[in-house]
């Protein structure tokens, strides 16, 4: 990885290798705003969590404040800032609902109008309500495990659908699926 940017320390345009200035060796900012770019990942909805994790660790290994304990203030600052940035980006990418918003934004769409999860689809509403009712009346651990497995499977299928809709650029379909997905995730979380 090689980029030419002005180094904050050298004050001239220099080559940056692995986020360090090739002249003075000082750490440089990542200079990327969207999470996919930070980790150098292909902008697909379905991502390889293991690949993401490896890249996350590689970046933290470069930027984590533990690596800058003897460094100058400015380098500590960059380390703290970028290390937080990497943490935030990592968590966003791990979240299957946030990933939709990021990709929509990258493609130039509003994330989710007004952040409101509204139902335009009556069948969907009924399906969610029924699932919620079933969760309310869980009596034993076995039943809970069963419903949880069911929900996890539903989530898996929706994720596949969303992925193929992104590939085919079928954006309006994604909106409904995204609402459904976030409800399913909420129900799953409440089962803990």
């Amino acid at each position: 990885m090689e980029v030419i940017i002005p180094c904050w320390n050298c004050q001239t345009d220099t080559k940056v290798v692995d986020f360090r200035c090739s002249i003075c060796n000082k750490i440089q900012n990542i200079r990327k705003t969207n999470p996919y770019d930070i980790f150098n990942l292909k902008q697909c909805y379905l991502i390889d969590n293991e690949e993401l994790e490896i890249k996350y660790f590689q970046l933290q290994n470069i930027f984590h404040p533990d690596k800058f304990i003897n460094s100058a203030e400015k380098e500590k600052e960059i380390s703290a800032y970028e290390s937080s940035n990497i943490n935030n980006a990592y968590n966003l990418l791990l979240n299957n609902v946030d990933r939709i918003k990021i990709l929509l934004k990258l493609k130039g769409y509003k994330a989710n109008p007004n952040n409101e999860e509204s139902f335009t689809d009556k069948d969907l509403l009924e399906e969610i309500m029924e699932l919620q009712n079933r969760c309310m009346s869980i009596e034993n651990e076995n039943e809970k495990v069963k419903i949880k497995t069911e929900i996890i499977e539903k989530i898996r299928i929706i994720e596949l659908e969303i992925n193929s809709n992104f590939e085919k650029e079928k954006i309006p379909e994604i909106k409904n699926l995204s609402v459904k997905l976030s409800y399913l995730e909420k129900i799953k979380k409440n089962l803990n």
Partner: peptide
């Protein structure tokens, strides 16, 4: 008028609803 939403980002870009 709709209240301005907390998130600036949601006001940038094409409107999803128009597509429907």
């Amino acid at each position: 008028q709709r209240l301005i939403d907390k998130n600036f980002e949601n006001f940038v870009g094409k409107d999803l609803d128009i597509l429907e």
